[in-house]
Computed example of a mutant assay.
Amino acid sequence: MLYRVEGIVIRSMDYGEGNKIITLCTENAGKIGVLVRGAKKVKSRHAALTQLFTLGEYVFFRNGTGLGTLNAGEITMSHYRLRGDLYMAAYASYACELLDRILLDEETGSFWFQQLKACLGELEEGKDPGIILNVYEMKMLQTAGYAPKLDVCISCGEPRSEEELLISPRLGGVLCKYCRHLDPQALTITPRALKLLRLFERLDLRKLGNIDVKEETKLELKKVMRSFIDMQLGVNLKSRNFLDQMDKYEI
Rank of each mutant, 00 (worst) to 15 (best):
R4K: 10
G16H: 04
N19L: 05
T26R: 07
T26Q: 07
I32W: 07
G33H: 08
G38V: 09
A39W: 03
K41L: 10
K43W: 02
A48W: 00
A48V: 10
L49R: 02
Y58R: 01
V59S: 06
F60K: 05
N63Q: 13
G64R: 15
G68I: 10
R81E: 13
L82W: 01
A89Y: 06
A89G: 04
A89Q: 01
Y91D: 04
Y91C: 08
C96V: 09
L98Y: 03
L99R: 00
I102V: 15
L103D: 09
D105F: 13
D105A: 15
E106C: 13
E106T: 12
T108A: 13
G109C: 14
G109W: 12
Q115W: 00
K117Y: 08
K117I: 02
C119F: 05
L123M: 04
I131C: 02
I131H: 00
M138V: 00
P148F: 01
P148N: 06
V152L: 03
V152D: 09
C156A: 01
E158D: 08
E158A: 13
S168M: 10
P169I: 07
G173S: 01
L175P: 09
R180F: 15
L182P: 10
D183A: 15
P191C: 01
P191T: 04
L196R: 07
L199F: 02
F200V: 00
L203H: 02
L205M: 07
R206E: 15
L208S: 00
G209A: 13
D212W: 11
V213N: 11
K214V: 14
E220K: 09
I229N: 06
D230C: 05
M231R: 14
L233E: 11
L233M: 09
N241M: 05
M246P: 04
